[in-house]
Design a protein around this nucleic acid. Sequence first.
DNA 1: AGCTTTACTGAAACCGGTTTCAAGCAATGA
DNA 2: TCATTGCTTGAAACCGGTTTCAGTAAAGCT
Lengths: 340, 340
Amino acid sequence: MNGPSLPTRSRVTISEVAEAAGVSKATVSRYIGGDRQLLADATALRIEQAIERLGYRPNQMARGLKRGRTRLIGMIVADILNPYSVAVMHGVETACRQHGYTLVVCNTDRSTEQESQHLAALRSYNVEGLIVNTLGHHAGELLSLHSELPMVLVDRKVEALQADLVGLDNRDAVQQALDHLQQRGYRDLLLVSEPLDGTSSRQERVAAFEAGIARSPLLQGRVLQTDGAFRESLRDFLVASGPGPKALFAANGMAALSATRQLREFGYRLFEEIGLIALDDLDWYPLVGSGITALAQPTERIGVTAFECLLDRLRGARGPARHFDFKAQLIVRGSTHPRG
Amino acid sequence: MNGPSLPTRSRVTISEVAEAAGVSKATVSRYIGGDRQLLADATALRIEQAIERLGYRPNQMARGLKRGRTRLIGMIVADILNPYSVAVMHGVETACRQHGYTLVVCNTDRSTEQESQHLAALRSYNVEGLIVNTLGHHAGELLSLHSELPMVLVDRKVEALQADLVGLDNRDAVQQALDHLQQRGYRDLLLVSEPLDGTSSRQERVAAFEAGIARSPLLQGRVLQTDGAFRESLRDFLVASGPGPKALFAANGMAALSATRQLREFGYRLFEEIGLIALDDLDWYPLVGSGITALAQPTERIGVTAFECLLDRLRGARGPARHFDFKAQLIVRGSTHPRG
DNA sequence: AGCTTTACTGAAACCGGTTTCAAGCAATGA
DNA sequence: TCATTGCTTGAAACCGGTTTCAGTAAAGCT
């Protein structure tokens, strides 16, 4: 009787299978490598039975060593607690599985140091390609990695890096939001964003917001980050007199959470006194107040596209960096019905 | 000028470093293996410089092959879209990093077939240990894997498997919920659970609920799963006459989401007409209606504990399977204040 | 029948490391 | 002075596969 957690029999190797089947390692290797048509039927059958009998599974590490193909894809995620990341990752994983790849996900918790560490780790495990949701600092490391293996950026571009990019059409999304808010009668807007931090998508949203405001004579707008004096600045916005009804525009799901929390803490009735539109569509949006109007990102497709793009490169596709910018989809709920 | 995605220079190997430093592979291996004190200072210095100059990083796959230590931990997650899973995973990852392990996460999307596939994949990558949030079907595979490497179950036990388990003290959590509901004056309860499916934690919660109800003369209770005729059955419960004020008890975060959605669809004002308490504490609970009362699981600690438990086994700890049952923490919000 | 293909298989080198074993050499002890 | 010891190091085997190359046997061709 084995005690639990007692790794007993060490794994069956190709040599044991070879011996059991009365053939050489090479022949077994050909069998598991898919060159089955090279083998005589009788031989293949003997090997098949030996494998079955012994419960043999080839060691991918060893295969990868000589072959250079580990069938491993690495993914760097800046913040695994952000539902956007999880949703994209889900898409990537689905695509990976369909193509026989295994995904190794590393979360950096928004730490530059951990990003470095994880990149090094993934490299050392010989991943064939990388899908990166990076902080964007220290482009040097990414650059040198990109000279070694294909890489696809998700959501965040890196100036110095000529890599494929999959993300949202931020300009379009922000414009959709502004159009919607304006049409619903809101005039005094506040864009709430997580700290910009050099994160390209956040910066793009802010830039598009400011540009949009500048183009719209009816609208007034400010930008606020969810750190430092967030609470006080938000209060300032809420009590200041402006050109008309006020609305918040949360630049992503996390910002929506912070903003809504803060509104509640201030005692606002959601969303009778102030409008809200949020980028990302989280599953609890419908449940808050009269429901939060959202600009949904096609997260699953973003993930799948990122992988397919990578696969393309893995198969040898050359050429300049490609950009896939998906459109956001407006989902109207109660939070953008003035005086609820 | 390299085009993008052009994997150029193949990686530097130990032999090149050895040559550059004028020593043998073995010596370099000792250097990177941490046996630095074995080497003469001058030698170590030359190697260090060669490594630096060439940008050498050892290939973990190759190391793992001979050494048997891949420094890889595999984790199977039943549903990555469930925030509970993500939170636990975050804990596991943190612990992994601190101990120099890399985590490979596989999501089964609640599919038995995918679970098999991923288990096989993880095995083939020579992960040193497994953290498993399993569906619990086909125990055979898990069993045979467990004879090869250490394994820790998370949240869900498997009868036939004598493995360490980390999870919640479900009986205690349910009792806390019942006590709280009863104290707040609720009398007619409905436990809302995702489909039982053989998932041990769900079954335990249901069993504890039924046992608790049976012990409490004041309370009446039923159980409902969020599939099939969920909508209709919920309506039945809501309109039926019972022994007193009604409350829902969501057995986890996903159930809380379904239940709240359905209540809204029915036009209930949250939570003036009906109480709600939910297992798991998701970040949006405070935002819904008057806030959802929760029983928080220490998810981060569960993850960390799972890893540490595994590490223990990796270091050779023997002995019977251990169970770590954490207590849930009651967080009272508006959803359990009768008549709002 | 003799020669060329074709089909199938095995020996050995190799992937990038680790580890064992023994050897070289200086320092120590008797 | 000679044997012993300890410190460094390299050669070679090994991990579990893949791949090249060559060899054997059967089949096809003239």
